[in-house]
Structure formats: C-alpha cells, structure tokens
Simulated assay, not measured.
Amino acid sequence: MTVVDPVLADVQKPTAQARGLPNAHYTDPDKFTEEREALFGSGWAGLAVASDVPEIGDAVPISFLEIPLLLIRGRDGVVRVFQNICRHRGMILVEEPRKIEGAIRCPYHSWCYSTQGQLVATPHVGGPGYNSHKDMDRTTLGLIEVRSHIWRDVVWINLSGSAPAFEDAMAELIARWAEFEQPLYHGGADSRFALTVNGNWKLAIENYCESYHLPWVHPGLNSYSRLEDHYNIEMDGLTSGQGTLVYRQLAGENGAVFPDFTDLTPKWDAGAEYLSVYPNVLLGVHRDHAFVIILRPNGPGQTEEYVHLYYATPDTDTALRERNAEQWKLVFEEDIFVVEGMQRGRRAPGFDGGRFSPAMDGPTHCFHKWAAGRIAEHRATA
C-alpha cells in the first residue's frame, strides 16, 4: 500500500535508511487516541491472563485504554470479557476484584446479569412491583461481550470484532513455538508482580525486542548470555524479538532445578526466545519455565507492566520459584530507566525519530514498520 504521509513512509524504508516514529507518537494525546483504534482495536491485543480469574465467579474490572472491561470466569468455567457497564444507564458494574456469588448486580437500579452475561432481573422496570415490561426484551440486553481468545494463558481481545480468527492471525508464531503447546501452570502469588513505567508503551516493546542493550543495561545477564550469543527474530506484521543460545537454568542450593517441559528438541537444552507480540504482549520461553508480560498503557506517558511466571508442573519448589521471580524482576527493573529516559528524550524538538543499526535493530524496526503501516491503513479508511 502506498503511504501518503512522508513521515510514515520514512519509517517503512529498509532498516539502514529508515527513521523511527516521530516524537508525537510518544507524547501527543491525540496520537494516543489514534493508536487506540489503529494499533489496538483492529487486531488481537493482550488484556490479562486467565490465571487472574482462577475460580468460577472470579471477576476483575480492568480499564483498558480507558475502556471499562470486566474479566470473569462464568459458572460454566469459561473465561469471558464484557464491557463493565449496565445496559440500562451505562453504570459501572464491578469496581473492585471480587467473587460473584450470585448475579452481577448494578448498584444503580439493581439490574442483574448472570456470569455468562445474560440479563436476568430488572426490578420495577414496568413500574413499582412490576419487574418486566412488554417493550423490554431482556434477551437483547445482555452484557456487551468483547471477542476474546486464550493462548499461553493470555486473554487476547479483539475490540473491533473484525480481526481474522486468532489461530489464523498468529499461525506463524504458534507454529514457531509448537513444542510448547502443552500445559502451563502459573506459579501463584509469588510468580506475579507489576511495574509502573513512566514511558510510552511502544518504548517498552522496542526495548524488549532487541539484545543490543544487554552489555550496558543487563551486565549480570550479559556475563553468561553475551551479546554474541543472541540472534534476531523478525516476523513482519506479527512479532519480533531475540533468542539466546546460552540459557542457564536456575538451581537451588541442593542442585534442584525446575522440571522441564516434555519432549523438547535439543535446541532448547541451552536456548531460549523472547518475543514482542504486537501490540502489547511480551513472551519468553525456556526449557523449564515461561513468562508473560501484559503492557497496559495509561495514556501516552505511562505504562503498567503485569508479569506472570509459568512452569511445566503444578508443584514447584517455593524457594526456587521465589528466586526466579526475584531474578526476573531485577532484569525488568533494569530496563525502566532506559524506557523512561527515551520518553524524556521525546521532548527534544530536534529528534527526528532516530536511526536503526542495520545489524542490531532489525527487530525494533520491524515493530516500527508494523505500527506505521497500521496507522497509514487506519487513516486511509477513516
């Protein structure tokens, strides 16, 4: 497709000639609003993980791009996503995470919904003492469901409802990690943490994509998994990231390690991969554990990072699990000053989006090309 905007055209040039997205895409509220539709709404984005609602009736309200959503595990055990509003007057239904014991009751006029979203009660809707009305069809007034799909425990949502089926949209990625299509067990309370970063969500994606920064930002990690041990991964229009040929298993004082995922090929004996799945999910796989990071933007200048660690078996050593979480938290915290520093740098009026190393920045440029292409398509159809 021909891009009319010359700035976006520059972003889509070959890596050696391209410039990055301009400052406004990191600082301007209007650009953030545009990206909500262009980058998040039309495809599959990560909202949360199914492990956030492990039991029937568990409900978690989530503000996603300022849209009030409700993640809930219904009485049938199915995890769904609804708009967190009553169909009567648009009142927020659930304010805090809780277990729904009966129905979801609106605090305003007590309209009630099942955990599967059906409208089941409308007190006095036909006048005092009359709980129905001939002109009120409850079957058409259930909660508004957001299209969703669960893969690698991530609850992926398609806000527009028009994206290709998840399995088709993510076919290349699913095939790449086909060996890991086996049960994942969330490590529990000690295997989840959240970080607040005062930077644009795209900078978190860009930083995670590449290994170029390892020697200076992650000296501990780089001491055994060196820059030269890494390789780039680029899947245009889907994901990009990095892999390492030198993954070192964490071992306890008695030499114990986490159980491996089953039937993996020798590639994974000492290898691992880390992918940014556009727009906002970061994934990592290793022989003995995996992780998910969901990025939730709070406007153009702040991002919440929700980190979850998973294992091949439901029962793992508590002390070793805690050490693993602490180790990863340190690594991800080391990235914060970089993302925040680049965000402050986007206030410099002379910065033109920057340049890319042809050898090292291919994964980052892959993300920029995807974003520029989606934005251009959105503008052409708006």
Rank of each mutant, 00 (worst) to 15 (best):
G341K: 00
A121F: 11
P6M: 14
R379Q: 13
G345N: 11
A189M: 03
T139K: 15
H368K: 04
S132V: 03
Q116T: 13
N324K: 14
A204C: 11
A189N: 07
N198S: 04
V94M: 10
I144K: 14
H218C: 01
D76F: 04
M136A: 03
M235P: 01
N84W: 07
R36T: 14
V53A: 11
W370E: 09
V154C: 06
I233G: 01
R87P: 02
P183C: 01
S110V: 08
N84G: 06
R152C: 04
A178N: 09
S132I: 01
V154Q: 04
L309F: 09
P314D: 00
H88G: 07
G117V: 15
Y208P: 00
A359M: 10
N198T: 00
G187W: 00
A270I: 05
R287Y: 02
G187K: 02
S132F: 06
H218A: 03
N207T: 14
H149G: 05
E55I: 02
E334Q: 13
D168K: 15
V285T: 06
Y278L: 08
D229P: 01
Y26F: 15
T33K: 14
A169Q: 06
S160Y: 09
F180C: 03
S148M: 04
S357D: 10
A48P: 06
P219K: 09
C86F: 06
H213N: 00
E326A: 15
Y310C: 02
D190C: 05
P297F: 07
N298K: 13
L141C: 07
A256S: 14
T318R: 09
D135E: 07
S110W: 10
S357K: 11
